[in-house]
């Protein structure tokens, strides 16, 4: 059953990707990338990563779509510009990257097996000891906010810095000052 759901979702992902490449209207591309994020969230739910699926659905399909539509409105750009350049270099780069990624998957352990290195290193310690030690039933939360709280502190600072940067670049009253300068 899970196999068929995965096949259907991945086929739709591929179809949406092709549509994004073919499409020239930027508004359609933004909406299609929102659909892509939503399909990706469904794939992550099938993979039992509900936290990541929630983030993908709210950030990828929700907020970035809104921000991208805002960008289109601000720039007034409705269609992709037609560059008359050769496609040889981009084609080589994307095919090369794809080939390297596929080559890299050959070195990975088989999907979902129990004795993969990632499941034998420190994960058993977390799974066995986190609940007696902290009393928090959700191991993901314990790892993120307790054992790895320095990392999460860093991530929060990254979000803070991102917000600060956007506010400095886009916010503020630069336009009004410029008007005042020309008047005086």
């Amino acid at each position: 059953m899970e196999l068929y759901i995965n096949m259907a979702l991945l086929t739709m992902l591929a179809a949406v990707t092709v549509a994004i490449i073919v499409q020239r209207d930027l508004f359609s591309v933004v909406i299609l990338s929102g659909i892509y994020s939503f399909l990706m969230a469904s794939v992550l739910i099938v993979l039992d990563a509900v936290d990541v699926a929630m983030t993908e659905a709210s950030v990828g399909a929700g907020i970035s779509t809104v921000v991208l539509i805002g960008t289109l409105y601000l720039t007034g750009q409705k269609r992709e510009l037609n560059y008359h350049r050769s496609i040889a270099v981009p084609l080589f780069v994307s095919l090369g990257t794809g080939a390297m990624l596929i080559w890299g998957t050959w070195g990975l352990p088989a999907f979902g097996i129990q004795d993969a290195p990632v499941h034998t290193h420190i994960a058993p310690t977390f799974l066995l000891e986190s609940i007696p030690e902290t009393g928090v039933p959700n191991v993901v939360t314990t790892v993120l906010a307790d054992y790895r709280s320095f990392d999460t502190f860093g991530e929060t600072t990254v979000i803070f810095t991102a917000g600060l940067g956007v506010m400095l670049l886009l916010g503020g009253s630069r336009r009004k000052k410029k008007k005042g300068e020309t008047k005086s």
Binding site: I63, V67, A162, V166
Partner: peptide, 12 residues
């Protein structure tokens, strides 16, 4: 941050 980014875009 998310609200601030949205406000900044709209304000612009």
């Amino acid at each position: 941050t998310m609200t601030a980014i949205f406000y900044a875009f709209v304000q612009r």
